[in-house]
Amino acid sequence: MCGRYSFSTSKAKLEAELGTTLEIEDDELQYNYNIAPTQRAYIVSNQAPGALQLFQWGLIPSWSKDPKMGGKMINARAETVLEKPAFRNAIRQRRCLVLADSFYEWKKEGKDKTPFRILPAQGELLVMGGIWETWRGEGKVIHSFSIITTGPNAEMMPIHDRMPLVLPDRESRQLWLEERNPALIEEMLHVPADGLLKMYQVSDTVNSVRNNGEELHEGL
């Protein structure tokens, strides 16, 4: 799964990799070194492909009676996303790019869990495939998203048996936002190619969402 990630990226880098001009300044970007479920984070949706939007992490289906349901739906498995009632409409109609610089994963060794920071091998923007929804109720409107996960590629396999769906280039990102054919969407739901990522061990201070600063990116 993907249960924690980070965003600390400049406007120039976002614009260069997304191929668009963003109406936001560097000092307006909200950096978060320890993004956790139910927090708001940056996405680019198929509804507004030229804009950064802050949506809540943890998809709340439009038909749900309980907005707290989103905390349990931070990931959508690629193998079942086209069939699951909570996800099947969103994957066909409401896809998004989830923007990050890295994600964290914990390697289990007996009773111990060792945290690793995982990021694109060449320092690129980390763009993950996601789906989004709009929930209305209790006098409020909540825009939320889930991150699509797949089985592991070669570099992730020693760490964990799941990983985010990584969209490594403009072509794959554009297809993710624009494609409408369910069969072609399904073709995109594959394990990311080997060699896309690098990783290193970080301090277990990342375990607590109360910790949030540049030091979380420091290797051991």
Rank of each mutant, 00 (worst) to 15 (best):
C2S: 09
C2L: 13
S6W: 04
F7V: 01
S8T: 09
K11M: 02
L14E: 10
E17L: 06
T20C: 13
T21K: 15
I24N: 03
Q30G: 00
Y33I: 03
A36G: 12
A41F: 11
Y42S: 00
Q47P: 00
P49Q: 05
P49C: 06
G50C: 05
A51Q: 15
Q56D: 05
S62L: 04
W63A: 03
S64L: 02
S64F: 04
D66A: 10
M69L: 15
G70N: 02
G70R: 02
M73K: 05
I74C: 06
I74Y: 13
A76Y: 12
A78W: 07
A78S: 14
E79V: 05
V81A: 12
V81Y: 10
V81D: 09
L82E: 13
L82P: 00
E83M: 02
P85T: 06
P85H: 08
A86T: 11
A86Y: 09
A90N: 08
I91Q: 07
R92C: 09
Q93W: 02
L99D: 01
A100E: 09
D101R: 11
D101C: 04
D101F: 05
S102H: 10
F103L: 07
F103S: 06
Y104C: 08
Y104S: 09
E105S: 09
W106Y: 11
K107P: 00
K107L: 04
E109P: 00
G110V: 10
D112H: 12
K113E: 11
T114D: 03
P115Q: 04
I118K: 10
A121E: 14
L126R: 10
M128K: 01
G130P: 07
I131P: 01
E133P: 02
W135F: 11
E138M: 14
E138Y: 14
G139H: 08
V141T: 15
V141G: 00
I142M: 10
S146G: 01
T149Y: 12
G151Y: 08
E155G: 00
M156V: 01
P158K: 03
H160P: 07
R162H: 09
V166S: 02
L167G: 03
D169E: 13
R170L: 13
R170C: 00
S172G: 00
S172D: 07
Q174M: 10
Q174Y: 09
L175T: 10
W176Q: 03
L177F: 05
L177Q: 04
R180N: 13
P182Q: 12
A183T: 11
E187A: 15
H190E: 13
D194G: 02
L196R: 08
L197W: 07
L197V: 01
M199H: 15
M199R: 12
Y200E: 11
S203Y: 07
D204W: 04
T205Y: 12
N207C: 01
N211I: 06
E214G: 03
E214N: 05
E214Q: 13
H217L: 15
E218C: 06
